[in-house]
Amino acid sequence: METPAQPQHQTQPQPQPRKRSWIPIVVFLSALVVACVACVALAVLMGRSVESTAESIHEEAVQGSGEWKIAIIPVTGTIQESAGGFTTSAATPESLKAMLDQAENDSKVKAIILEVDSPGGEVVASDEMYREILDFKQRTRKPVVVRMVSTAASGAYYISMAADKIVANPMTLTGSLGVIMEYMNFSKAADKVGISQVVIRSGEFKDIGNPFRDPTKEERQILQQLVDEAYNQFVNVIAQGRKMPTSRVRQLADGRVYSGQQAKQLGLVDELGNLDKAVQVAEQLAGIKNAQVVRYRHSVSLLSLLSSRLQMSTEPDAMKILRSAGYDITPRLMYIYRP
């Protein structure tokens, strides 16, 4: 009698220990490092400037290969105190000073050409740039020639008064000699949507320029006095720069724009021509020939770009639109051409 076969027990495979993956840990640590670096960079940007403007200037060869150099310094865009925030194209006193300092420290630079293409801008910034040019000339004795490009109006003409000579294209738009103060008035729109503003003030004129109401007669007089003072300063700067009687300047400074050709006939510019003409005039003033012409440029660093974007992100969209169009909700004195 056969013994029945005993069932065979199959040995179950033992689970292998799972290999630990280091990829998530590496990814986490990398993200942590990036976040820390970003926080440090943000703190630096918020606390101080991490990079001097002068270090970001480089030269571009334009023409010539002589021993001595003529440096072209661009003055492009709206003139304002700071270029950060709402615009990528602006001419500022800080930027101009940095380029003038570089030209001063370069012993081979014998003359400056300010390449002006601007409608003007803020009164204070224009005056600061004007005085920076005068100080540069006094310190270095290097001649300064202005080359007007498409537009060199109002505040841009103001700063040109510090130059030794002015060269304009016959079709350059210049002039617009005068001052403007403007601000937005939302009173009618506020009435339509039922918005009112409560103002508690320490004095009668503390909220002068309030955009939610019309200005009073007395407020208009106060603001007009400021405009008149800035206008008189503009007239005096032109009279000194062009060696022209103030009475004649006032005849010309009624706010209208002139072509380069008209400006030459009126004595507002010295020569008509392009860059070659400006170089020729600069060489004559400096007593040199066959100069190497270079153009200064600002290199935009990543940190300065991040700083600009940070400023933009903290400003309301409505304000960005108004500022990019050249308007503000608060009164500001402007040497600017409004087409």
Results as ranks from 00 to 15, higher is better:
Lys69Glu: 12
Tyr183Asp: 04
Leu32Trp: 12
Val27Gly: 07
Val27Cys: 11
Arg323Gln: 11
Ala163Lys: 04
Lys142Val: 04
Gly120Ile: 01
Asn236Glu: 15
Thr172Lys: 07
Val198Met: 15
Arg220His: 11
Arg213Val: 03
Pro93Asn: 04
Gly260Lys: 06
Ile238Glu: 00
Lys277Phe: 02
Ala190Met: 11
Gln262Glu: 13
Pro17Arg: 08
Ala325Ser: 11
Ile23Gly: 09
Leu223Ser: 07
Gly255Val: 06
Ser259Arg: 01
Leu96Phe: 07
Lys19Gly: 14
Ser107Ala: 13
Val249Asp: 05
Pro245Phe: 14
Lys289Met: 07
Glu271Thr: 09
Pro245Tyr: 12
Leu32Val: 15
Ser154Gln: 05
Arg147Tyr: 13
Lys264Ile: 01
Val198Thr: 15
Met148Trp: 09
Val269Glu: 02
Ile159Phe: 04
Val235Asp: 04
Glu67Phe: 09
Thr87Glu: 00
Glu219Ile: 11
Asn105Arg: 14
Met129Cys: 05
Leu252Val: 03
Ile112His: 01
Met244Phe: 05
Met46Asp: 15
Ser21Pro: 14
Ser304Tyr: 06
Gln80Ala: 03
Gln14Gly: 13
Cys36Asp: 14
Asn105Pro: 06
Ala282Ser: 06
Tyr258Gly: 03
Ser308Lys: 08
Gly120Gln: 01
Ser301Asn: 07
Gln251Cys: 02
Gly209Arg: 01
Ile57Ala: 08
Ile195Tyr: 15
Pro17Phe: 10
Glu60Asp: 01
Gln14Ser: 14
Arg20Ile: 13
Ala168Glu: 03
Glu104Cys: 08
Asn210Val: 07
Tyr157Thr: 10
Ala71Val: 05
Arg309Tyr: 10
Ile195Gln: 12
Ala282Cys: 08
Thr151Ala: 11
Glu128Asn: 14
Arg139Leu: 12
Val27Arg: 10
Gln225Asn: 14
Pro13Asp: 13
Thr330Gly: 03
Val75Glu: 00
Lys97Thr: 14
Ala325Tyr: 08
Met99Arg: 07
Arg139Ser: 12
Ile23Asp: 07
Val149Asp: 03
Ala291Ile: 09
Val279Thr: 14
Gly155Thr: 11
Ser65His: 12
Gln16Leu: 10
Leu29Trp: 08
Ala263Thr: 01
Met244Asn: 02
Lys264His: 05
Val179Glu: 03
Val37Ser: 09
Glu115Met: 08
Leu305Asn: 13
Phe212Met: 01
Met334Ile: 01
Ile23Met: 06
Cys36Asn: 14
Tyr183Lys: 00
Ala111Lys: 01
Arg20Cys: 13
Asp106His: 06
Arg147Val: 11
Pro215Gly: 00
Tyr337Cys: 07
Gly178Pro: 06
Met184His: 13
Ile329Met: 04
Ser313Ala: 12
Thr246Leu: 06
Pro24Glu: 12
Val293Ala: 03
Glu67Pro: 03
Arg48Asn: 15
Gly85Glu: 04
Val167Tyr: 00
Gly326Ser: 04
Pro316Cys: 09
Val281Thr: 04
Thr314Met: 11
Val167Arg: 03
Lys108Glu: 08
Ile180Trp: 05
Pro211Leu: 05
Val300Lys: 01
Ala5Thr: 14
Pro74Ala: 05
Tyr258Asp: 02
Tyr337Asp: 08
Leu310Gly: 03
Ser187Trp: 04
Gly203His: 02
Ala263Glu: 02
Val281Phe: 00
Pro24Met: 07
